[in-house]
Amino acid sequence: MIEFQQVAYSYGGGELLTEITLRLPPGSFHFLTGPSGAGKSTFLKLCYGELHPTAGRVTVDEADLRKLSRDGVALIRQRVGVVHQDCQFLDHLPLAENVALPLTVTGRPVSESDLGDLLAWVGLKPLSDHLPPQLSGGERQRAALARAIIMAPDVILADEPTGNLDWEMSLRLLTLLIELNKMGKTILIATHDMNLIRNAKSQVAARVLRIRDRRVQLAGSDL
């Protein structure tokens, strides 16, 4: 699905990531961990073309992200749902419309009942009419997840999705992601929450990628 070949990323003064060669096969469940500033967000941004590698190449379904046209990148992003660390919404539109936005911008019809089901699934149905600034951090993260999956993407990337959540809510979000994985979606979660990783490992065959010395390595099963 997503493949890195000898990828390096450097900015300004130094190299942040180097010699990354790995593959996220379809249906896999990965965690990405490492200290703050190690490049977790950068790694995710390389996956959907917000950043381009300074060396090597990143492909999504064999398509080199760097060589794609701007519309080509847009198409890839319709198939890769992203939950950002600081989720951005259109603050003048109510929650329900924000969640349906990926459908709107691609000219697809929005089914009210599907949208309702999705909002109920992330526990936000009663807040459909609220504007994003009225939502708490946790509600925003769940709204971002709903928006990321409304297009039924093949891949879901989440950057510190539980950063703003208490433990109970974190587990709930994790459960949602595990359910999606069981439906065949490829999942990659960047987090430094070891408890979350342990909890997930008890429910799903999750693998852990660790950033160490600017390289991304597959961690052993010992955590």
């Binding site: 519309d71 198409l75 936005l101 911008v105 000219g107």
Partner: peptide, 17 residues
């Protein structure tokens, strides 16, 4: 700009924006 960035990230094409 934040609106445009968000739209770009969720897969909106330039022509739409």
């Amino acid at each position: 700009r934040p609106v445009i960035r968000t739209l770009r990230l969720i897969g909106a094409r330039d022509t739409f924006i």
